[in-house]
């Protein structure tokens, strides 16, 4: 099922399905957020924003606004 990155809970893994159209789209892609990329939500800052995400072993923090631009698919198998 398709979801938005900002809705994913801490500790869950997901695969990027699409980046929504916006002026930040290329920027997000350049940071490694491309279709098919696996990521894990690590933790959130106090007040739930920004969000820290593990992408291939590096940690990217992004604001909710930016996370809302990323469509993902949650991976059900609880992989670490």
């Amino acid at each position: 099922m398709g979801q938005i990155l900002s809705q994913i809970k801490n500790g869950e893994s997901a695969v990027v399905r699409a980046i929504l159209e916006s002026s930040l789209k290329v920027k997000l892609m350049e940071m490694g957020l491309v279709e098919g990329k696996k990521l894990e939500i690590l933790y959130r800052a106090p007040f739930g924003d920004p969000i820290a995400v593990d992408i291939d072993g590096y940690v990217l923090s992004l604001r909710r606004d930016e996370a809302q631009l990323i469509e993902v698919e949650v991976q059900n198998s609880a992989t670490s």
Binding site: L24, P50, A52, L60, L62, D65
Partner: peptide, 11 residues
């Protein structure tokens, strides 16, 4: 024109 954003690597 640019919208503020925060995309920050946490080394």
């Amino acid at each position: 024109k640019e919208k503020g954003f925060l995309l920050l690597e946490m080394p």
